[in-house]
Write a protein that binds this DNA or RNA. Structure first.
Lengths: 347, 347
DNA sequence: AATCACCATAAAAACCTTTTTACAACTTCT
DNA sequence: AGAAGTTGTAAAAAGGTTTTTATGGTGATT
């Protein structure tokens, strides 16, 4: 039988090589306690010479932490995940911790994921994108012994950390941009999945914006099966095109940039002039928004920032700097490009 | 002083509750060895009643494995990372292992990353996207004690596992598609960063395709700073537009779909008809290729598959099923859409 | 009836650190 | 000069599993 691991060198080997005890080696390696200069030199030499790499598994057990943060997302689609990851990883790396990624879809999968990461101590804290009805999940999880920060959902009543985006306000502003700035005749809202809280919140903001205009929100909002270009394209054909009349001007608020792109392309393919006849505003400011000929006006979401703050929040909890559950609400910002029609107005 | 963790219940608690020894609990929990039915019942009951969750940190130390696989990528840009992640996570989840993601850019960062994951035993194996000159990194890493599979680079001589894409062949086919099928007057190649092996391999394939045509490859290939839309747009203006003559027909092979999109948009913005005057073929078949009005013809790379196979390969190594270093070479597949001009020919 | 094999379980060792406790050998102070 | 405090290091305990070894008890074998 062949031995797999080349019996890696442990703290004992270093101790022996340096002629000291293991506790001394540990103190040198972790730079704590007082060590005589001469001893330190000997130990450091031995560490270097043997190329001693502390076994992180043993460290994890002893220190009761893994220096790892879990990130649970519903999917890897679109640019959202990548941007979140970018921010989270950045903050994590700066603090010497690692990111473990899990994808979990239904409530059961989410519970399972949190259990593996949290309850079994695989991570020191978890960032959770709930995205759907949360109560089932949170109840299923039960009491947690390490920090859990929830994105995209207000779970303040559960005394959990929260990094949120004010979706309602964002959609409100996008809609009002059409109504106030562009003076459109009518507006539509194209959401993602209807049991996705992002979407329902944005639908609320859309309704808010219509209040007092005489326009009824009900018949003006439609929902995709997911946040994709293809769905945007499909629903534009199914629900929006039939409602468009020649001489009027319209505004479409889409729940993300992918959907917005689909809507725009369908409308253009159908001979509708975008943005003259119909303007479009997306959500996210994902790269694709500016990587097309007609650049998409969008509500920028500081996704990278959210990732960074989520990690920051967990780290703060861990160091005990913060004890009250955090609730941070970020705002979306209107990025004016071409698809809303602002350029037309100027000319 | 407040106690942070609610002293979680251990195998000892279960043993006491069931009136057996801890080794018996371990045997029941892991379903090994022979246990009397009656004893098993008692233990299982206790486990359930106390909601015992084995401490994965202790398991990791004892079992000498973490059930975690590392994934090191150069960046999170584009859709490539997401697709890779999708495949890797899928295979991982099916086998009860986790994915730890690290971003590492230069050789030093890569060495550091591999050290943390591999040498310190944080993961059981690592998937590494080298993407640049590899020798520095591989030498810096030194001997490794757990499986390392390298993507996108032939490191067979280092006796490492390898999942590769035949970039040279892919670029050759793309180029020949223009020459053979479309009978173009001239072709161009737009690569990514010049010290990125993907790009240099594809440049070689481009050269291969020009052999015997009388066209010189040298002046026909240009390199972006990165694989982005903006760079494609920029280089199309700087290098390609000046070379275009009115009555001729051109083919542009881009190193990925983002660049291809940029090129197309620049050409169209400049009044060049795409694909009539200039056809474009991208690489990757990333979502953006089909999420625009003029869909991009592209060399599809089975990225998800690569992610899956990389995890599979590590798992196989771990279980000792495979001992010889694997070298799997996948082929890119031409996906004909609109940007190459095939539709025009038909009409 | 004595020996043997076998089975179920307990006890102990191992995994590799960190952290606490203990203990000498010096300093310093009165 | 003796008590008290400091300092540097060793020894031991702790962390929670898995795995190996030991052991008492049962049924079969001669």
């Amino acid at each position: 039988m062949m031995e797999k691991e080349t019996a890696s060198i442990t703290i004992h080997d270093v101790a022996k090589a340096a002629g000291v005890s293991i506790s001394t080696v540990s103190r040198v390696a972790n730079d704590l306690g007082r060590v005589a200069p001469e001893t330190r030199r000997k130990v450091e030499l031995a560490i270097r010479r043997l190329n001693f790499q502390p076994n992180s598994r043993a460290q994890a057990l002893s220190r009761k932490r893994t220096d790892t943060i879990g990130l649970i997302v519903p999917d890897f689609e679109g640019q959202y995940f990548a941007m979140l990851m970018e921010g989270a990883h950045q903050e994590a790396q700066a603090n010497g911790v690692h990111i473990m990624v899990l994808k979990a879809n239904g409530p059961e999968e989410k519970i399972e994921a949190v259990t593996r990461l949290c309850s079994q101590g695989r991570t020191d804290g978890v960032i959770l994108m709930l995205s759907e009805l949360y109560s089932d999940v949170l109840e299923g999880i039960g009491p947690i012994n390490s920090p859990l920060v929830v994105l995209d959902q207000d779970v303040h009543s559960w005394r959990l950390d929260n990094i949120l985006l004010d979706n309602r306000l964002g959609a409100f502003e996008a809609t009002r941009h059409f109504i106030d700035t562009h003076n459109v005749d009518d507006v539509f809202f194209l959401g993602g999945s209807e049991n996705n809280v992002d979407t329902t919140d944005r639908a609320l903001g859309f309704s808010d914006a219509l209040r007092g205009t005489g326009l009824e929100a009900e018949q003006r909002q439609f929902f995709c099966r997911n946040y994709s270009y293809d769905e945007g394209y499909r629903l534009a054909g199914k629900n929006i095109l039939p409602l468009i009349e020649p001489q009027k001007r319209y505004g479409v608020v889409a729940a993300n940039d992918d959907i917005a792109g689909g809507v725009m392309d369908f409308l253009m393919d159908s001979g509708i002039e975008v943005p003259r006849q119909a303007g479009v505003i997306g959500f996210d400011d994902s790269p694709i928004a500016s990587q097309r000929r007609l650049k998409i006006t969008t509500m920028r979401i500081p996704t990278k920032e959210i990732g960074r703050m989520a990690v920051r929040t967990i780290l703060n909890r861990l160091t005990g700097k913060v004890n009250e559950p955090a609730k941070i609400v970020l705002k979306a910002e209107l990025i004016v490009r071409q698809s809303c029609g602002c350029e037309l107005k100027k000319n």
